[in-house]
Design a protein around this nucleic acid. Sequence first.
DNA 1: ACCTGAACACCGTTCAAGT
DNA 2: ACCTGAACACCGTTCAAGT
Lengths: 240, 240
Amino acid sequence: MATRTRRSQRRTEALSRERIVEAAVELLDATGEGGLTFRALTERLATGPGAIYWHVENKDELLGAATETVVAAALAVEPTRAPDSPAGAPDSPRDEIRAVALGLFEAIDEHPWLATQLATHLSRSPWGSVAPRIFESLGRRVRALGVPEGSWFVVTSALMHYILGAAGQNAANARAGGGGLDRDEFLDATAAAWEELDPDDYAFTRAVAYQMRGHDDREQFLAGIDLVLTGIAATHPPDA
Amino acid sequence: MATRTRRSQRRTEALSRERIVEAAVELLDATGEGGLTFRALTERLATGPGAIYWHVENKDELLGAATETVVAAALAVEPTRAPDSPAGAPDSPRDEIRAVALGLFEAIDEHPWLATQLATHLSRSPWGSVAPRIFESLGRRVRALGVPEGSWFVVTSALMHYILGAAGQNAANARAGGGGLDRDEFLDATAAAWEELDPDDYAFTRAVAYQMRGHDDREQFLAGIDLVLTGIAATHPPDA
DNA sequence: ACCTGAACACCGTTCAAGT
DNA sequence: ACCTGAACACCGTTCAAGT
């Protein structure tokens, strides 16, 4: 009686690595990191564990593949033209960096498991294939920005690190609603909790708690990007 | 024959939450994230699982406590005075921020499991007690920097995100030696791998691969911090 | 109040056997 | 070459029983 979910659609296509990864992503989206098990996968694909292991090394590799797929999709989207730019006029590198960053931000927002997974994945196989993808996408625009070659690595890394850190934290906020609260209630509860902190140890945090309340994630994220971009411009003036 | 490790020192102190968390940290340091199991913990503490569950809710909570302990210790260290500052002269807020950042960087370097754990922990209980600690420590200095109140939240968050993102990625590099290679060999191998990437899809990454080779993690990390700090200063000029 | 340790449910992975 | 499904080792967690 317990488990009859979804074996309905008989398997028509043969199993393949792609289909397995696709199912893994769906499962992760629907049930979170804890929901991806070989048993759940096995049922969703109407097959046995052995079949999956024929196409995939192990669970780590499967998680890595899921991560890569989603990141690749996020980066494949052509950076959308800024709404106020005249038709035909190319975006500035600065706008393009914003767009790439926002694409990653949104991917993590849609697939909250990505945040944890990126950290884990990057730390298991640091420069697997996810990092170079992001790195390349940002780096081309850093170069277009006029940053001198000697600083390409540092500058691009800094951008990437900010993006991953911020988007991750944000996925956390977005998902926190899982407890049944919606986002506003959650931010409200957090702000309230901050205001309860020890006045000596947490003077600053208490003082900014109110800024937590109405804040817009996307706006904040972009403000941070702008801070970094401004730092880049100030450190490497365009015509030095 | 298999498992006789370390039951030698008979348990003298009673079990306590503190001792359990301490043992968990040791286990994580010695054997990585995968090495922390209730069975290993049980043996190290010469007790049974039930005893541990008396002091600790579950494994997640234990991991959270381990994370909090290590982060608290990292932040408790008084920021070291810059070596060139005259004795008695207080450090600038900028130097203090650098020092706090470096403290976290080094904590993650010493406890590589922290990188993944911070992402997981922050995303499970986003504003548990780790984030406010870091936030407070940075925020006080941001305030001292002269940033206007309306921007405290954004600016402090941006710093925190960069630090967590960069330190995490770096822990990955440091740990990558696990495969038997040392750090230089690893960076070398990575650079080589980058140079093999597709010339069309990865033109930029290939072009910076050589910068990967000799780079100093700490130096790079601080260069990124400086970029953000410069951005902050440019966005919020000291005497506006 | 604190601890013991057997037991349970679940999970990743393997492998002999099938087609 | 690709898939099946029973079986194995291991893990987090529970709980009746002890002190």
